[in-house]
Design a protein around this nucleic acid. Structure first.
Lengths: 229, 229
DNA sequence: CATTATAAGTGATAATTATCACAATTTCTG
DNA sequence: CAGAAATTGTGATAATTATCACTTATAATG
């Protein structure tokens, strides 16, 4: 999925930045908490952000992640008074934040920018709905497969051996995306390793048989563009 | 969640209608299929529409439903070339459809209308993400509870006995929302009936202890506005 | 109103997944 | 590089859920 800022002209992006305030966060910092008043939309200059919901003591569900040139906080800013997720940095991050009212004024005056926002949110919605399908309809294996496919769409490099994922993936990250126990995810991944479907060098995975995943998830109908985490 | 057309002025809604084409469908008709070219956004004048994905032979997953004054098809129109869901009428329906390009022109010229679209899509996104949480994080009971809570937010009437849901609900409808077998849903619902948590007159349900559901789903943080199906 | 068609309930059983309790690996840090 | 911390693997067992094969109940139709 194309990051929000890359969809617009430099001038439009500049307009948003000049109306924003620069804020820095170190790795692992919390930018806002679920339930906080939703005052800002955040643009990611550098870094990566994980949005998640807490579902119990020591239990989290990752809702999505966003990276450079993208934005987050739309859920609160456009649709409610409060953020419905917690936002946390995955890496050191430099963000620009624009307040609610300033943003609305810009969008009202500038339908072109607004249309980019609508498309961006609509694609996020698309991604979210496709996730529901994948996570629910094909059991635990389907859910894990879906996470791998989505990583491969985001960070995959095609090689002769298969698709190499350039971002490190931890088993427990996968587990947090799909709400399945770490142990079960571990067992599924190891079964696939034995069968030669995937391979890994510690946290770096190689999908040797992407078709196995696509078949499992009945991917024919589904475009790849919005199949992301 | 407020239907799209009710968010805007009559003039703005009128502008959209005059650029649209009226189409009628009988109950159970398919408006478009997953994979069809996404040429139109549809406004619902009267009727109710169910959007779903097919996940196997005789297996469907309901993605969402929309009713009067609302719209659907945004996924294709704003974000892709193809519809990613199948749209089917639940009741006889009168729709207006506007083609892709005409809509984009209107939104580009009119940031105010565009902002309503963005908010509407952002709230749908919010609903979708909250669903993921509910359906995944609290087991089968949580998923079923979530469907009831969402029905009650959409069609609930508060009475001295509890919340009465004015729309008929079939067990297999619930099952299609959450991807859990009909039999399991049936067993869960009957267990709750025995315990006095819910009651029903055939398809009409009464939630006697809404708090039981809210506790199960840890609803404290979550606003009710976008907690819909 | 009898007859189909749909939907729902249920027992038995198989399959899947979670949980617990550690052991083994890998990564981090001084 | 050693020791600590974090992550992963694994066996045993419990809990949950799906599936199958019916039966029962409800709704639709001529």
């Amino acid at each position: 999925m194309e990051p929000l800022l890359q969809r617009m002209t430099k001038e439009d992006a500049h307009l948003l930045f000049t109306n924003s305030q620069k804020v820095k966060f170190i790795k692992g910092a919390t930018i806002y908490n679920e339930g906080d008043s939703a005052d800002y939309l955040y643009f990611i200059h550098t870094g990566e952000i994980r949005l998640f919901k807490r579902t119990g003591p020591n239990k989290e569900l990752t809702i999505f992640t966003r990276g450079e040139d993208d934005a987050f906080g739309e859920i609160g800013v456009f649709s409610g008074l409060k953020y419905s997720n917690t936002a946390e940095t995955v890496t050191d991050s430099v963000l620009y934040r624009i307040d609610n009212q300033t943003l609305e004024n810009i969008l009202t005056d500038n339908g072109g920018i607004g249309l980019h926002f609508t498309r961006w949110v609509a694609e996020s919605l698309e991604a979210s709905k496709a996730k529901i399908r994948d996570y629910i309809a094909f059991g635990s294996e389907g859910a894990v497969a879906s996470v791998f496919i989505r990583y491969s769409n985001m960070y995959g490099v095609v090689t002769t051996e298969g698709v190499r994922i350039t971002e490190p993936i931890m088993i427990q990250d996968i587990s947090k995306h799909i709400g399945i126990s770490r142990e079960t995810v571990s067992r599924i991944v190891n079964k696939w390793k034995e069968r030669g479907i995937i391979d890994n060098d510690n946290k770096y995975f190689l999908l040797k048989k992407v078709d196995y995943f696509k078949q499992l998830l009945v991917c024919e109908q589904c475009g790849v563009e919005n199949c992301v985490l």
